[in-house]
Lab assay of single mutants.
Amino acid sequence: VSVELPAPSSWKKLFYPNKVGSVKKTEVVFVAPTGEEISNRKQLEQYLKSHPGNPAIAEFDWTTSG
């Protein structure tokens, strides 16, 4: 189950709350306009370098507050 949070234009930000008793931590995933899922800052940096014209990296908020 995921919750969609505010994201930069043409992107989606999905929040996957951890299940009770789960060892997996809460996860935030950005979905690029191409449909590619980005789950960490390093991936995001690589994606933005190879896909010019996207929002600046500073516009991506990895917190769950939206």
Rank of each mutant, 00 (worst) to 15 (best):
P6T: 08
E4C: 08
K25P: 13
G66A: 12
Q43Y: 06
I38G: 00
V20Y: 10
P33R: 01
E37Q: 13
V29S: 05
S65I: 11
S39F: 13
S10E: 14
N54A: 07
T26I: 11
P8D: 04
V23L: 14
V28W: 03
A7V: 05
G53M: 05
L48W: 02
V23E: 15
V29R: 09
V23K: 07
K25S: 10
E59C: 13
H51R: 03
L44E: 00
P8R: 03
N40D: 13
K42Y: 13
I38A: 01
T26M: 12
G53T: 04
S2L: 10
L14K: 08
K19M: 13
P17T: 15
P6K: 08
G66S: 11
Q43D: 13
P52R: 04
P17A: 09
T26P: 15
K13R: 04
S10D: 12
A58T: 11
E36Y: 04
P52N: 04
K49F: 15
L14M: 09
A7Y: 04
P17N: 09
Q46G: 09
Q43E: 14
K25L: 13
T64S: 11
K49Y: 10
T26K: 11
K49A: 13
G53D: 08
P8M: 06
E37C: 14
A56E: 13
A56K: 10
H51Q: 03
T63R: 08
Q43G: 07
F30W: 09
S50Y: 10
E4K: 07
G35V: 00
E27K: 15
Y47T: 00
P8C: 06
G21D: 11
P33S: 02
P17L: 12
L5T: 05
F15W: 15
E59I: 05
E36N: 03
L5S: 05
E37K: 14
K49H: 11
K24D: 15
F60W: 02
W11I: 02
L44D: 00
V23P: 14
Y16L: 07
E36F: 03
E36M: 05
W62E: 01
T34Q: 02
G66E: 11
F60P: 02
V3G: 06
D61M: 05
V23W: 08
T63Q: 07
V20R: 07
T34R: 02
G35Y: 02
G53P: 03
K49V: 10
N18S: 10
V31K: 06
N54C: 05
I38V: 06
K25V: 13
E45T: 08
E4N: 09
Y47A: 00
N54S: 12
S22Y: 08
T63I: 06
A7T: 04
A58M: 09
S39R: 15
F30H: 01
E45N: 08
S10K: 14
S9V: 12
G21Q: 07
P52A: 06
R41E: 09
K12S: 05
V31H: 04
V29H: 06
K24H: 15
E27M: 15
P8K: 06
V1T: 12
P17C: 14
T26Y: 15
K12Y: 06
G53Q: 06
N18L: 10
Y16R: 13
L14T: 04
D61S: 07
Y16M: 07
S2Y: 15
I57M: 12
A7L: 04
V29G: 02
A58Y: 11
N40C: 06
I38R: 00
E59Q: 08
K25E: 13
N18D: 10
G66M: 09
P33W: 01
I38N: 00
S2C: 13
V1D: 14
D61P: 02
L14R: 07
E4I: 08
V28L: 07
A56M: 09
F30G: 00
P55L: 05
A7W: 04
E45H: 10
S2M: 14
S39G: 07
V31F: 08
Y16V: 09
A56T: 11
E45P: 00
T26D: 15
W62C: 03
A56R: 08
G35D: 02
G21R: 00
L14I: 11
F15I: 12
S9N: 12
Q43I: 06
A32E: 00
V31P: 00
G66T: 12
W11V: 02
A7S: 06
N54E: 09
A7I: 04
A32N: 01
P52L: 05
Q43P: 01
K19N: 12
L5D: 05
A32C: 03
T26H: 14
K24A: 15
L48F: 03
S2R: 11
E59P: 01
N54R: 02
K42D: 13
E36V: 06
K13S: 02
E45R: 10
S50Q: 11
E37G: 05
V29Q: 04
L48G: 00
I57E: 08
T34G: 05
K49P: 01
K25N: 14
V29E: 03
V29F: 07
K49T: 11
K12H: 08
N40V: 03
S65Q: 12
F15P: 02
L14W: 09
G35R: 03
Q46S: 11
Q43L: 07
E59K: 04
Y47D: 00
R41C: 10
A58V: 10
K13Q: 03
Y16G: 04
L5R: 05
S50L: 11
L5K: 06
K19D: 09
A58K: 09
K42N: 11
S65F: 09
H51I: 01
Q46N: 11
S9K: 14
F60N: 01
L14H: 07
N18V: 11
E4Q: 10
F15E: 08
S2W: 15
W62K: 01
V31D: 00
P8F: 05
S39Y: 13
